[in-house]
Simulated assay, not measured.
Amino acid sequence: MTDFRDIPHDERDPNPWLALYLDDSTPLPDHVKAAWLKDSSSRSRQFLLPFIRPLARLSIILIQILKVLLPKRWAHSKLLHRTLAFSMNRFVSPEANWLIMRHFHLGSQILSFIGANAPTPVPTQPLAPMEIDDIKDELFLKHDLNLFNFVIRLNTSLRTHGQHMGPVAEPNFGMLCDPPLELAAMPQGRFNILDLQSAIEIYTPVYQLLLTDNDFWRASNSLQLDETVAIYAAKILSSPEHLVMLNNKHPLVPLSTLRAGHRLVLHGLSTEMLHCLLMRMATGETPLPSREIAKTRQAAGRSPQPS
């Protein structure tokens, strides 16, 4: 955070990263925004990503052809996750690793928030890894499964009880917190330089190769549910304008897997922003729309009726 605040402002050559850091139009905590922008402005992203991205997308096409020849259930999920953990420990930048690890915590907390405030409460299975080696427990796969299972359980329960998601005057924010993950605790070896977007572009074809075709397609399509989850939260909060910056819509129109890496980065950013918005409402920093609506309705109910 100090790095960006110390950047001098030259009006003849304004720094774009300083502008993005100071901009407060979207909800992001300063320490998260600083880590995100430091990663985005790295040499790795500037010089490696333009070469990695087209090679990664070509790999996705070639692997898709290869999958036609492989057995339908061919997969090595445990090898995949051991490979991911190994590479994250040795090659991925501290900021990128920290943002990836935070994502499991934030996603779990957002689902718990929706589940706890639904008309028919729905249990969740939170994922809260504390170190990179925890990923070896097939964490990425479990993250995708959790999302789809939650949507199915929630809507099955709502249909069974004839209920719909709606405003909650006093939402339960008790499950929300800043994940207890320290940026300084992330691996900081000599080769830990790979930025978040480059790492994700590399991981996407590896993910495709070592999972079944069905698992990979489900993981890619899970990115389409960003809007779905945001709508649930917006209904609880009576705040449709706070659907954050969603780019992975529409959930009923699946997109090609070729851009899955880029969409995954957008998914991570929208999760950070939604969590930040909920945290601000929990602390009272941002007014809670559903509470204000409830007060307005209550006052209207006490108003004298016209004769």
Rank of each mutant, 00 (worst) to 15 (best):
D3N: 09
R5M: 03
R5V: 04
E11C: 02
R12G: 03
R12T: 05
L18K: 04
D23Y: 02
T26I: 10
T26F: 11
V32C: 06
V32F: 08
K38L: 02
K38R: 03
K38A: 02
K38D: 05
S40P: 02
F47H: 04
P50L: 04
F51A: 00
I60N: 01
I60S: 03
Q64K: 08
K67N: 13
P71N: 14
R73G: 06
W74S: 07
W74L: 12
L79W: 12
L79D: 09
L80D: 11
A85K: 10
F86Q: 08
F86W: 08
N89H: 07
A96S: 07
N97C: 13
W98S: 02
H105W: 15
G107Q: 06
I110G: 08
L111V: 02
L111Q: 05
P121D: 03
P121W: 01
V122Y: 02
V122A: 02
T124W: 05
P126A: 11
L127P: 08
P129W: 00
P129F: 01
I132P: 11
D137A: 07
E138P: 15
D144I: 05
N146P: 05
F150S: 01
V151F: 01
R159T: 12
T160A: 01
H161K: 03
M165S: 04
G166W: 09
P167M: 14
A169H: 14
P171R: 12
M175C: 13
L176E: 08
P179K: 05
L183V: 09
L183K: 09
A184V: 13
A185H: 07
A185I: 09
P187V: 10
P187G: 06
P187E: 06
Q188L: 06
G189H: 01
R190S: 01
N192L: 06
S198I: 00
S198A: 03
A199Y: 00
I202A: 00
Y203P: 00
Y203M: 08
V206S: 06
V206I: 12
Y207L: 12
Y207D: 13
Q208I: 02
L210A: 12
D213P: 10
D215A: 07
F216N: 11
R218H: 06
S222P: 10
S222T: 03
L223P: 11
L225T: 04
Y232K: 05
A233I: 12
K235A: 13
L237T: 12
S239N: 15
E241Q: 06
L243G: 14
M245E: 08
M245P: 13
N248G: 07
T257C: 13
R259F: 13
G261Q: 05
H262L: 05
R263W: 00
L264G: 05
V265Y: 01
L266K: 08
L269Y: 03
E272R: 05
C276Q: 07
R280F: 15
R280P: 14
M281C: 15
G284H: 14
E285A: 10
T286R: 14
T286L: 15
L288A: 15
R291E: 15
E292V: 10
I293K: 14
K295F: 15
A299H: 12
G301N: 15
